[in-house]
Amino acid sequence: MTQALFYILAGVIVASALLVVTVRNLFHCALALALTMFGVSGVYLYLGWEFLAAVQVLIYVGAVTVLIIFGIMLTRQVMDDKARVMNNQVLLSLLAAGAVALVLYLVIGHSDFQYSNHPALTAAATAPAAEASAYADEVSSLAAGLLKPQNGFAFAFEFVSILLLSALVGAVVVARKDPS
């Protein structure tokens, strides 16, 4: 049952990801992208990472895809589906994609990352009644892992937030009209 669920999710993700790169109507591409991202959050849920799933939807569907749709709507006409699917960099991009996949495969294969937070998948299946409480408190452990000084990620975390802030300010400066 749970296995079948995974294959359905994977099928949806792969199919919609293929749609993103093959459909000629850019708006449909963006909608397919939203579906892909939603499917990925489904995989997170399948593995029991509720927080990651919610953040995935919030950022990739609620923000990134909406931004892309905005871009498309401001630059295209409604029935204009003359977007080119291929360009002359096919070989180069295939190479890049393959390299990324290889690196990801190697990194994930060698890490001791705990894939699943789901009690039914990690330990022997417990009684379904204890379903909700059996989840580890993911948010607290994530916060502790990121922000406790002895884990060594606190500085990087703060640094990333400053980087994001400066990017935000930079965007405002670039977008602002010249007063002259």
Partner: peptide, 11 residues
């Protein structure tokens, strides 16, 4: 969850 799921209304 509520914040995330309702962001679909924009789309």
């Amino acid at each position: 969850y509520i914040i995330a799921i309702t962001s679909f209304t924009v789309i």
